[in-house]
Structure formats: structure tokens, C-alpha cells
Design a protein around this nucleic acid. Structure first.
Lengths: 201, 201
DNA sequence: GTCTATACTTAGATAGAC
DNA sequence: GTCTATCTAAGTATAGAC
């Protein structure tokens, strides 16, 4: 498989490059304030060339949103199906969630805030993943309450609160590799699991 | 103080009306996607008439942002100065924060997500209130850890996590009056204070 | 305080050459 | 796969009458 140093970019890696650049710029300025020309400039091509890879600006936004909704469903949720107590499984999920979020920080900022700009079909698709993820977290909370590990709370409200705290990390975390997330994972895990643990009122 | 039913709107109440309508529309579609004409249409005047009340679209956004940064600083933070233990004062703040947020739900959605569209000066102003609010929360956490009520955590990370959970409520809470917030206040308070409380690891 | 009319700029998207 | 050139629509903001 011979590759040259400055060979023409394949279509697949161009798409990845476009999505990545778009996420970074949109996170800074907002979706509607960013033009196709801005995205094109960031990767050194002309605006019109973007339409060879995506049929519209909204398709790029859709791709960004999928990386922070479809990916977490596929990569993080299996941890909830693994062996272990609800405490252990939720702990694993919190760590994976924050690490994935650090890896795709700007995509999270965009995907969490710019959903109103999606077409109704794409919006429903993205929201479907979000709701499913939320439901799976709620289910592990319910399991932990049944087993007596977790105190009695409204599992729906607790799931929303937990995910808000986790997703909020995208607004201020800095760094690029997994170790940069260690402190946050430890602190947030202690705070959330401590709050869930059954004990004296 | 005589008022007529359909008298001409005063400048002050027109400004409030504009800010309120703008917040609602921008929360739905995003700041840059909303035109001055859209805001004007919502209150039944022409786009050009908005410039009698605000010198630019950005000034309207700035006004929205202040209602969710300046107001909480002035209305909620005094609760942290009142008598009581750190637990009691933080509990009071959580309740006030969520109730204020319910009262200004759409303004929170805009103020938390659209800050990049502010001018650097206004952005610095708004961020100043946010940082101060965050610092005051961090300080009450530190006080609670010193007193032994709260477990030892990084107070800065815990403050960020707590505020992320609280502000996230604006994304899904429904209702208009204070009683609609009661369940959320009770659940989030139990979860957060339980997580902070010192106890067996 | 609100209007009509408009100046000026920039946006997303397309056509067709290379 | 990328380019130049361009179409059409929409945006913020201003001028000046009422």
C-alpha cells in the first residue's frame, strides 16, 4: 500500500478533515455565523469544493452531531452491559464518557448546542441517540436503587443531572490525551457516586 | 398613576419586550440564524424600529446575557453570605439558582450558548459575572471541607461540576412557576449534597 | 416611536472548465 | 477533486418622513 508524502487526499479523509475543521470553527463562532468559505479556508480549498464532499452545510453539521451521539452509544454503552454491580458499571461509563468527550471536545460543544439548526429528520435522528443514551443511564440507576446500592431518587431526574454534569465538562476541560482527564474523572466520579450511594440522611 | 389599556409602549417596557422575544426566538434557532426582522415580527413592529431601542443586534444579545449572569450574582449570591452552615447555604443557593433559571429559562439557553457572538468587551463583562459566581460556589465548598461537613475534593472541579448540573436544567425543565421546580430542586439537592457530605469511602 | 425605502455586504449553492 | 465565476436571496444597518 504505497502512499506518497503529498498525494491527493482521498475522499474519505477529506470528509474527516472537513468535519474536524468545521467543528473547531463552529465551536468558536456558532454554526450560523460560520460560512462555507470559512470552513474551506481552514483546510486550504475553495468553498465550492466542499460541495463535492457534502451536499450542504447542514450535512456537515449532521456529521458533527453524529460523532457525539452515535459514537458514545456504540462505544460507551457496552460498558453498562458488562459484568459488575451498578456502581461498577456506572463508574466505568463515567470514565469512558469524559474520555470520549475530551477526545471530541469541540464536536461536543457543537453537537450539544447547535441541534436546532438540523433538519427535522436529522434532528430526530440525533435526538434518538441522545434519548437512548439517557435511558440506559436511567436504567442502571434504577438497577442500583433496586439492589440497595443507590438511594431512592427519581431515576429520570438523576440521569438528566448526571449527564448534564458530564457533558458540561466539554465547556472547560483542556488537554488532548487521556491522562488530562484523570483528575476530572476522579473528582466527578466521587461526587456523583457519593451522591447516589445509599446512606444515612 | 393612570394607565390606559392600549397606550403607547414606553421605551423601558419596549426594551424588556424586545429582549424577552429575542431570547425565545434565539433559543429556538440560534443567534446568527435569527434576523432583526424576526425579532421585530414577534412583537409587531418593523425591523428598523428596533434600532430606536438598541443600537445593534449584539446589544440585544448582551442584554439577554446580563439577565442570566448579573441577575444571579445580585439575587442568588447573598444567600451564601447569610447565617448558616456551608450545607445550609449551598442548599439555599441550589434552590434559588434552579428557580431563577426556571423563571428565565430561554435567557439561560441563549446566555450559556451564544457568548461567542458577543463583542470582546461584552464577552469579558459577562464572563466576569460567571467567574465570580463560580468562585463564590467554590468558596462555600472550601468552607465546608474545612469544617469537615464536606469530603475532600478539588473545590474548583466540584464547583464546575455542580454548576454544570444546575445550568443543564435549562435544557429540559418545563413549567412557569416556582412549584414546577420543586421536584428538580429536591432531587438535585439530594444528589449533590449527598455527594459532598463527608462519610465512609 | 414607528414607518418606508434602500444602501451595502455576505451568505449558500450551482455551472462548467480543467 | 478542485477550480473560477456567478446567481439569487437575505442579512444588518441607515436616512429621513410622519
Amino acid at each position: 500500500m504505497e502512499e506518497r508524502v503529498a498525494r491527493r487526499k482521498s475522499s474519505a479523509e477529506r470528509q474527516t478533515e472537513i468535519v474536524s475543521a468545521a467543528a473547531r470553527i463552529v465551536a468558536d463562532h456558532g454554526y450560523a455565523a460560520v460560512g462555507m468559505r470559512d470552513i474551506a479556508d481552514a483546510i486550504g480549498i475553495r468553498g465550492a469544493s466542499l460541495y463535492h464532499h457534502f451536499s450542504s452545510k447542514e450535512e456537515i453539521l449532521y456529521a458533527i452531531c453524529l460523532t457525539v451521539t452515535q459514537e458514545p452509544v456504540e462505544q460507551n454503552l457496552p460498558l453498562l452491559d458488562a459484568a459488575g454491580t451498578p456502581t461498577e458499571r456506572l463508574t466505568a461509563l463515567i470514565g469512558a464518557h469524559i474520555r470520549h468527550l475530551l477526545h471530541r471536545r469541540v464536536e461536543y460543544l457543537v453537537g450539544l448546542h447547535e441541534r436546532p439548526a438540523l433538519t427535522p429528520e436529522h434532528r430526530a435522528d440525533v435526538d434518538g441517540y441522545l434519548h437512548y443514551y439517557n435511558r440506559r443511564v436511567r436504567d442502571v440507576l434504577t438497577a442500583g436503587m433496586r439492589s440497595g446500592e443507590f438511594r431512592a431518587l427519581d431515576p429520570g431526574l438523576a440521569a438528566l443531572g448526571i449527564l448534564d454534569m458530564l457533558n458540561g465538562v466539554s465547556g472547560w476541560i483542556r488537554g488532548t490525551d487521556d491522562t488530562d482527564a484523570d483528575d476530572v474523572v476522579a473528582s466527578h466520579t466521587a461526587l456523583l457516586l457519593g451522591g447516589l450511594r445509599a446512606g444515612p440522611t
